[in-house]
Amino acid sequence: MSDVIASLFHPVALGACTWLILLWTHARISRKTPPLAVKLTTGLVTGLILLLPVQGASVGCWAQGFHPNPSLPGVGLIVAALVHRLFGLVLLRPADLRALLIYGAIAGSVLYLHTFWSSTADLYYLGWLDTAAIWTIAVLSLSFLAAGNRMGVILLFALLAFTFSALESDNAWDYLIDPITWMVCTSLLTFRLLRTGWVARSSIRTFFSPARVETSSRFRPVSPSLPPP
């Protein structure tokens, strides 16, 4: 069963990511909600792109070679966004999304950058201590669930994926964070913080400057929700 899950996990994650990019691109160009035909066509194109041969290997094969271990929070983010665009369902509420972004930025920064400031810490090794890793994920998941946050459900899926060895890696860290998710989370979080700061500064300026009240309406409060389908 583990082998079946492992062989399906990466293509499904990659397919979801590619499909999402195509739908997003369509939305940016047409500036309207894609009709069913477009959704189906982009799905078909996704399959074709992944099978496209490049230098003797398919695009999917190249992607798996470069990024063999897509983490569950990353896949969760993609699937939630794809489901939202395809069916209009909100799987991750703003608080869930915010928690995921903060979690991804912190977990990635700690894991990937700790060797630069500490030559003695060896965090990645801890991910191979199976029992400790399992209960760490479980406690993390329970903490989020206690707060009513769906990030806890994503971590439950990470635990399931780890149990069934869905990734190439046997290291628990790889189920919790990956470099792409880290970069996406950090970038989105930084962007949001900058925009929030910008809006806050603009609000203060407009508060003291009545003449700018009209123009300040373009600085709408940042909605942490996913973009509309």
Binding site: D130, I134, W135, A138, S141, L142, L145, V153, L159, T163
Partner: peptide, 15 residues
């Protein structure tokens, strides 16, 4: 979900 998490963790620990 909490029960599911604990169950999966317990199962995984045994595995």
């Amino acid at each position: 979900f909490a029960v599911a998490t604990i169950t999966v963790a317990h199962f995984a620990t045994m595995q």
